[in-house]
Structure formats: structure tokens, C-alpha cells
Amino acid sequence: MKVRMKIDHREVEADSGSVLIDVLRGEGIRVPSMCYLEGMEHNTSCMVCVVKDRRTGKLIPSCSHRVEDGMDIISGDGEVHEARKMSLELLLSEHVGDCEAPCQVTCPAHMDIPLMNRLLAAGKFREALQVVKKDIALPSVLGRICPAPCEGACRRKSIDQAVSICLLKRFAGDHDLAGDRKYLPFRESPKNKRVAVIGAGPAG
């Protein structure tokens, strides 16, 4: 059975019982969503897929509404976009995770610790060292004296204990020093300038 409705002032037909977001996407309209997966039960939690039904003037979540005969849907005007933006801001305000790993945020050198860990776990020691040396010049030395603020922020602590990031960094450096072919990062060409280094080691 078909239902007749309007989408953005166009007459369309859709199968009765269809989910509104599927019909909109079938018409080539991009509707954002974060909690909707076709074929799975809907829980209508993110509200970033809202559209407006002109019959009532109300905003409705398109991921959980079934199409109805006579619907008059606006998929994206100023009010709809503002509502989606607000929904996303509310989601982010309660975001308990981080898009960037806390260990990397806490690291004074901002080293890509998750990537180093993945490469070491895969046995790609040289590639891991390249990641380390992009931000840290002396990993073997720093791996012995660093106070490791990254480990204090490690998410793994919520399960058992922090990943030994400092030891892993040290391993990457020591493995390179023990090898026959040392890794040397890319160096810029000389600039005919001099600098004075005061102190020794990584603090110099």
C-alpha cells in the first residue's frame, strides 16, 4: 500500500509503514543521524535527524516516525538546522569520552601515543620509532627519565592499570640503537645559523 506525501514541496509516494528517514534518503536527501541503523530497533536518542512536518509545525525525529498519508515534510530549513545543531551541542556537552586520546593530550610533546602502541603491537618497530621521533628526539633517554603524565591519564586504568607508555617508548628507542640501521628523521637543509644549547640531555 502506498501513501502520498510531500517532501520539500514535492509530491512523492512511499510504501506504507516505511521509516521517514529511509524515504528521505531514498529521495536523495541527506539526513544526519547518529543513533539510527537500518534494520535495528530505533531508540531515538540523538535527535540530529529531526525534520519538520508543516501540518503541525512540529519537529519530529525522522528515524522513528513512519510515513503517513498527507505528510508535508521540510527536510532542512533554518529551524531544522538550528535544532540539529542544538542536539549535537547537547550530545557533546555530555560526551564522556574524547575524540583525542587523553594520553596524547596530556603528553607535553603531544606524541601520537595510540599510533605508537598499535605499531608496536603489530611488530612494526621501525614505523613506531618514526612516530616517536616525529615529536621526541631522544626516546631512549626520555623513556628512562620521563615522569609519564600520559600514564596518569590513560583510559586503561578504568579497567586494570595504565599502559606502560614510557617503557614502550624506551623500547622503541633501544630497539633502534641495538640495530645495524639507525633511523634518522628528515632534516631540513642548513640555514647558516647557530644556536647555543644550555644544559645537557633532553632538557638542554
Rank of each mutant, 00 (worst) to 15 (best):
M5P: 00
K6N: 09
H9I: 13
E11D: 09
E13S: 15
D15K: 12
D22N: 11
V23T: 11
L24V: 00
G26M: 01
E27T: 03
I29P: 00
I29N: 01
V31K: 01
V31M: 03
M34Q: 14
M34I: 14
Y36L: 10
G39M: 13
M40W: 14
M40F: 15
H42G: 14
H42F: 15
C46E: 14
M47H: 14
M47Q: 08
M47L: 03
V48W: 08
V48Q: 13
C49I: 12
V50G: 02
V50T: 09
V50Q: 12
D53Q: 07
D53F: 06
R54D: 00
R55M: 03
R55Q: 03
T56C: 00
T56H: 05
T56I: 08
T56K: 06
K58Q: 00
L59V: 07
P61I: 14
S62K: 05
R66V: 00
V67Q: 04
V67P: 02
M71D: 08
I73R: 02
I73L: 08
I74Y: 08
I74S: 01
S75P: 06
S75E: 08
G76N: 03
G76W: 00
H81T: 05
H81G: 05
H81I: 07
R84P: 03
R84A: 09
K85I: 09
M86I: 12
M86V: 04
S87P: 10
S87A: 15
L91V: 06
L91E: 11
L91N: 05
S93K: 08
S93Y: 12
V96Q: 10
V96R: 13
C99D: 06
E100G: 07
Q104I: 00
Q104Y: 06
T106W: 11
P108V: 10
A109K: 02
A109N: 06
M111C: 15
D112M: 11
I113D: 07
P114C: 10
P114T: 09
P114F: 15
L120Q: 05
A121V: 01
A122R: 04
G123T: 02
R126H: 01
A128I: 11
A128P: 07
A128Q: 01
L129D: 10
L129R: 02
L129E: 04
V131C: 02
V132W: 03
K133V: 00
L138S: 02
L138D: 06
R144S: 14
R144Q: 13
C146Y: 11
C146S: 00
C150I: 10
G152D: 02
C154E: 07
R155Y: 05
K157V: 02
I159G: 08
D160S: 10
Q161P: 01
L167H: 14
L168S: 11
R170F: 08
A172I: 01
G173F: 15
G173H: 06
H175F: 12
D176H: 01
D176R: 10
L177Y: 05
L177Q: 12
R181L: 12
L184K: 13
P185S: 11
F186S: 12
K191N: 07
R194P: 04
V195E: 15
A196S: 05
A196E: 13
V197S: 03
I198E: 02
I198Y: 04
G199D: 12
A200S: 06
A203R: 07
A203T: 10
G204T: 07
G204R: 01
